[in-house]
Nucleic acid binder design. Structure first.
Lengths: 343, 343
DNA sequence: ATGAAAGCGCTAACAT
DNA sequence: ATGTTAGCGCTTTCAT
């Protein structure tokens, strides 16, 4: 079998405890013995057995992350932020992709508990219902990253969805748009999508515009659903001048449908997205979008979680990361009805 | 502390060994005692401590995956395939994103070894040099997933890069293109990019076309580098009729640059990508590309690795996943020089 | 069919 | 400053 501490101890002529002390650079070990131990480590090519250490210390330096759909580039950035910040802090990540299925999320939670993770980060739309309950009763430190959780015990970090969506609509209205279609997330998404809808409604109300249900289509954050969402909206409203999609992929899918239908963007219809993924700069027309940093979200989540794990209470356990409306080519001013302009 | 096997044993009136047996549904335990044990498990809400089991059995059911750049949607699909297949087989994934830095990859390898991973999957361009050496000497079962590894001991699964690139060029030439620019991966990428260049050269040679170095630009698989790569190619060759980019992102970045320069696609220049990410269907013009399935690559890698871990030798340790040229809107026939057609 | 006992490799009192 | 001892929670011979 592999080299153990005992082997190192024997070679260095000390006890295993001393080796352990050296490796954890703990309480004063004589410099000379430390050197001897390190030499033995080198010579034997010794590498500590983390699993034994974990069992003994009851600390796995493992953070679980449950996310819904890694092919979403925004989530990928979050994961990257998590992974990077975690590594700086000497944690490793064990990732589970639930695709938004509650059943899978619960399964991951169980697996991760058994693996004795030190904490967990959850980026999911299913944060009400049983998942939240199970997490709370598991007593594992947790940070949610998909929206605002209205529970004082639960830490979360997220963009301010309500305000951000409000600003997107506000921007469109200020540019002369009154007939604005929305492609939202799945109805089952009780967090990000629900919060954004709230912001949309607020903006409409404040501008004295009615938000007819005909103006809302359901999507699932994929290109495809943006495509079909736009189709749906167009068929139900022949006077649309703008579309707000709840992520960039859907916005791009929508643009694709509009272009195929011979509709010019932004001349005929303005389109605005959400997230600001890398791609948004490179599509044609370049996408106007509400930008947020997934990387920052991820690293912030780890920062918070690390505090929680160390038992340090957070002075603020509800954190908003910044967002910014970035104006590019897919939106423009709308100057009232122009006869025969379209269709 | 948490509930242990001992607690369960006491409640069920049996010994810990029996509980262990029941939990591993091992050698005949009387049905009645098994039921009693399971009842106790339920009642106490007992969950096994994986870390203790790992220490004892020396099997962590953990697979390490080292990848370079998760924001690459193709890699994201690979990870998803890995994660899914792994879960079916009762493994968990511990993922490290090296961003292609060899130093980080070596660090991850070390960390993962200490965590006693059962096997490792590496999707990286740095597979020659020290990484391959270190992995071999670590004796951890490994599967490479970024290209063909010319070492009989090393298992790999990949698209057939040489043939796929050959076919892309072949397709362009058969469509009348003679001046074809290439945006390749980083020079440091000794695998996928190098193999594809090989295929490109082969195709050129077989068609009796010279491959001038002026026709090759270096990219790094990002949109940006596709954009600047196209710029570079155009500035050096004013008679280009086609561009082959080594992934879809670069192809899309290239298209963006061309469009900004008033060049029409595919009328003036045809563009072909590689990978077939979801997005390729939804950009305008939709991208012609060499499609491969990242998901399949990932799941296949786990399948192979699982065999290796179980000590079952692979009948074939070099596997190619299928690829297919998908013709969409970004390429078309080229009919010789048309004066004043462009610029 | 079940229990007793040993031990995986490490750390942390406690003792010296 | 270092060694001795016990034990983390589990599995696995070896008995019975």
């Amino acid at each position: 079998m592999a080299v153990t501490m005992k082997d190192v101890a024997k070679l260095a002529g000390v006890s295993p405890s001393t080796v352990s002390r050296v490796l954890n650079n703990s309480s004063l070990v004589k410099e000379d013995t430390a050197r001897r131990v390190m030499e033995a480590v080198k010579k034997l090519n010794y590498e500590i057995n983390d699993q034994a250490r974990i069992l003994r210390t009851n600390s796995s330096r493992l953070i679980g992350m449950i996310g819904a759909g890694m092919e979403n580039p925004f989530l990928a950035k979050v994961l990257k932020g998590v992974e990077n910040e975690a590594r700086q802090r000497n944690y490793n990540i064990i990732y589970g992709d639930s695709d938004g299925e509650l059943k899978l999320e619960l399964k991951f939670l169980k697996i991760m508990k058994q693996r004795k993770i030190d904490g967990i980060i959850i980026i999911s739309a299913n944060i009400y219902s049983s998942l939240l309950e199970k997490v709370k009763e598991s007593e594992i430190p947790v940070v949610f990253g998909s929206g605002y959780i209205n529970d004082p015990d639960i830490s979360c970090v997220t963009v301010d969805n309500v305000t951000a969506a409000y600003e997107a609509v506000d921007y469109l209205v200020n540019n002369g748009h009154k007939k604005i279609g929305v492609i939202q997330g799945p109805y089952s998404d009780a967090v990000a999508s629900a919060e954004r809808i709230k912001g949309v409604r607020l903006a409409f109300r404040n501008h004295g515009i009615e938000l007819d249900d005909k103006l809302i289509a359901e999507g699932d954050y994929t290109f495809e659903s943006g495509y079909t969402g736009a189709k749906e909206l167009l068929s139900r409203n022949n006077d649309l001048t703008a579309i707000f999609a709840f992520n960039d992929e859907m916005a791009i899918g929508a643009i694709r449908y509009l272009q195929e239908s011979g509709i010019s963007i932004p001349r005929d219809i303005s389109v605005i997205g959400f997230d600001g993924i890398d791609l948004s700069k490179f599509v044609k027309p370049a996408l106007t979008t509400v930008e947020q940093s997934g990387y920052e979200l991820g690293s912030k989540a780890v920062e918070m979680l690390d505090s929680l794990i160390q038992g340090k209470p957070l002075s603020n356990n509800k954190i908003f990361i910044p967002h910014k409306l970035v104006e590019r080519e897919s939106t423009e001013m709308h100057f009232g009805e122009v006869v025969g302009k379209r269709r």
